[in-house]
């Protein structure tokens, strides 16, 4: 099959294959929201089938859902659309649990989806901002490894941040 038709109005379809064999057929404009795929497409002689051995189908599907939304709305980018995207983004990350956030972040990072990484890291930050130290350890399952007295010393030095 020839891929020389990319300059015409016909949208090229790409086949993305996840680690568990699940495949997704997506428009090139959608998939190239991801920097990694964009690079592969720009490389000469690229195939229409792209294998992504580091992402499983569940999370690749979610990443592509995000791409689809943002690729569509990019065509007429005025302020109103910007707002709509923000609301959609907020809904998208609203109820994600940590395990999903972890895998999505790993996937978005691997695929160089910079804007998606921003969205996901901001979501994680919103879960920890304003929280107590003990709550952070609880949330992230971290054990304190300070020697006796060390933590108290840091607290004392930065007491204003604990008010």
């Amino acid at each position: 099959m020839s891929s020389s038709s990319t300059t015409t109005t016909t949208t090229r379809l790409l086949m993305l294959k996840a680690s568990d064999g699940v495949t997704f057929e997506v428009e090139e404009a959608v998939a190239t929201k991801l920097g990694a795929i964009n690079n592969m497409v720009e490389e000469e002689g690229s195939e229409d089938l792209i294998c992504l051995p580091n992402v499983n189908g569940k999370f690749l599907g979610m990443v592509l859902e995000w791409c689809k939304k943002h690729a569509n709305n990019n065509t007429n980018s005025d302020k109103g659309n910007d707002e709509v995207n923000k609301w959609w983004d907020k809904e998208f990350v609203m109820d994600l649990d940590q395990n999903t956030l972890y895998h999505l972040l790993m996937a978005a990072d691997y695929l160089s989806g910079t804007e998606l990484v921003d969205l996901l890291t901001e979501k994680v930050a919103s879960m920890i901002r304003g929280k107590k130290v003990e709550e952070i350890r609880e949330t992230f399952k971290i054990k304190s490894d300070f020697l006796p007295g060390q933590e108290e010393e840091i607290r004392k030095k930065n007491s204003w941040a604990f008010e």
Partner: peptide
């Protein structure tokens, strides 16, 4: 993630580990 956290929380989180 930490680049989205407000300064005061960031300073406090020094005590996590």
């Amino acid at each position: 993630i930490l680049s989205w956290v407000p300064p005061q929380s960031l300073i406090r989180f020094k005590c996590v580990s």
